[in-house]
Amino acid sequence: MLLIPCPHCGPRAEIEFSYGGEAHIARPEEPDELTDQEWSDYVFMRRNPKGVVLERWVHAHGCRRWFNAARDTVTYEILAIYPMGQNPPELPEPRYL
C-alpha cells in the first residue's frame, strides 16, 4: 500500500485516495474537428509503460483535491507530485536494481 504525499494534507495511506489514470490528456477544445480515430484515441487509449508514469490522483477521503504524480511502475516510488495544469518537474533518475 502506497504512502501518497497529498499536497494539502501530507503523506496519507493509499486507501484514502482514488486513482485518476494517465495525466496530461487534455479534453479537445473542438471535438467536432477531430476524426473518429482521434476522438477514440482521446477517450480510450492510454499508455502503460514500465518505468515513470505521470498520473492523476484525488485525495477522495481527505481534502478531495486532484493532483498529478510521477510514479515509477518498477519501484512504485512516487518521484514527485505537482499541481493540475502544470508540467512535471525535473525527475530524479530511476533507481533500478
Binding site: 485518476g20 487534455a26 479534453r27 492523476r56 484525488v58 478531495r64 483535491r65 486532484w66 493540475m84 495544469g85
Partner: peptide
C-alpha cells in the same frame, strides 16, 4: 463534477 472542475 469535482474532477472536471479541478482538472479540466
Amino acid at each position: 463534477l469535482e474532477e472536471w472542475l479541478q482538472t479540466e
